[in-house]
Design a protein around this nucleic acid. Structure first.
Lengths: 245, 245
DNA sequence: CGCCCGGTTGACTATGGTCAATACGTGTGG
DNA sequence: CCACACGTATTGACCATAGTCAACCGGGCG
């Protein structure tokens, strides 16, 4: 049992300024406070199955979870990677469209569905923030469509690594001078499900990138990136830059 | 020059009840009316390029357009198919993230960006409706991720045909008894860009489905579906039904 | 100790991509 | 009117990338 972090005050919350509540004023925050409760999940637990009734929507407070779809013959495709401050659930729909799985220990800040939906119609900031977040999600989903549809296995791996590195950087993990380290929270199989590959192909491509010095491994899950631009040049994208000079 | 359909009154508009203005009341509609204007594009014209400054957001009134992304070596992936009532543009961002191309003659109902964004903060219904539409878009993007990442070429074609058939049905094209006809507005190349395939593979798979009697062609662009369930069984999805008993 | 899980690697195969020839329909100009 | 070119689609031969099946490795834990 890892039941830590039973936060109660929104004002102390680590995701206060990035989650769906980010632009709420004190009064709105109080309303949210009244309908919220925390839930914890252990690594590997399923948060919900596609088709399940969901009595709440939620913000990810801590940990990592995946959103995935499965064909009946077992092929699965991950369609979202949820990290701290991401939103779970769809206002206006009471069943989940996807399997949601905790892949590390996860803490959710849950809001009961009905009161939350009501709040969306009465207070402007929640809906506005949710729209902005949804538009961002849509952009990343479309970025993934490009990766899934048009990139080679090697480019897919490089793209995944740069995306995770950028997200970790955005959340505030400071890059060590010159050498960026990514703790990638995914098994080879999970990466495969994300990238539309098999786990063998993922393993082979990671080995190839390692062999050629594009990345280095520290254990199985920690990846060191000696030259971020080199990695970016393997993604097939524009060398637009963004993170790192 | 096909400058038809210069509608002016929102109340007569064919997309009045499905577009971003769907849930507006009379007063809100009047405000929109004040900032709107129409634009026409011919088949093949580019509405805007990725990175372009966009001074407006818009609703598709008529026609079909595509949203696509291109890698610098020319590989392109379509990330959205816009039909009547779909929304173009992203409030809060002034440049387009994607290439938008008219593939049939298109009429847009454009709203000047600034006033539109202002309206989003002052009137609730526009933002709410846009959120609902964006959530739907996100769902279809994720459905496409599954198709792109995990389906075979044959399943991809079958999936595309069922999706277009369902959308045409939703818009009100009545299926002929037993025999559904889909007028697919896409060239083989556009289908390939949508499905993450080459145009040759698209052509081969369509020929195969025709050879086996799953579909029949009427010209190059019109596809007859004698048994919709048969086609669904080729998509790899659940036989959940939905359209047609 | 031995099992299990996650990962790596190898040998072979299959699916879809590449390159190229051909067909078909439509509009243009001699 | 026909010849031609152009854009779109079809088909074939060959090939490359990634998938399949299987063996093996190494660490953690009962």
């Amino acid at each position: 049992m890892t039941l830590q972090m039973i936060e109660s005050k929104c004002t102390d919350c680590p995701i206060r300024h990035r989650a769906v509540c980010a632009s709420c004023d004190a009064d709105e925050l109080a309303q949210l406070e009244a309908i919220k409760y925390y839930r914890n999940y252990e690594a590997g637990q399923t948060i919900c199955w596609a088709g399940d009734e969901m009595s709440f929507v939620a913000s990810m407070v801590r940990g990592i979870a995946t959103l995935s779809q499965t064909l009946e013959d077992g092929r699965t495709q991950m369609v979202g990677l949820l990290m701290a401050s991401d939103f779970i659930g769809r206002p206006g729909r009471s069943t989940s469209s996807y399997d949601v799985t905790a892949i590390s220990d996860v803490t959710l800040c849950c809001f009961r569905r009905r009161p939350f939906e009501k709040m969306m119609t009465t207070t402007p900031h929640v809906g506005e923030r949710l729209l902005a977040m949804t538009l961002d999600e849509l952009d990343s989903a479309r970025e993934w469509m490009l990766i899934l549809g048009r990139k080679t296995a090697r480019e897919k791996i490089a793209s995944l690594l740069t995306i995770i590195a950028r997200r970790e950087a955005a959340v505030g993990m400071v890059p060590v001078l010159g050498q960026i380290a990514v703790t990638l929270p995914l098994t080879r199989e999970a990466m495969a499900d994300y990238l539309g590959l098999t786990l063998e192909t993922v393993s082979r491509q990671i080995s190839a990138l390692k062999r050629e010095g594009v990345i280095a491994l520290d254990g199985k899950r920690r990846i060191l990136i000696p030259d971020f631009n080199r990695l970016i040049s393997e993604t097939g994208d524009d060398m637009d830059g963004g993170l790192i000079a």
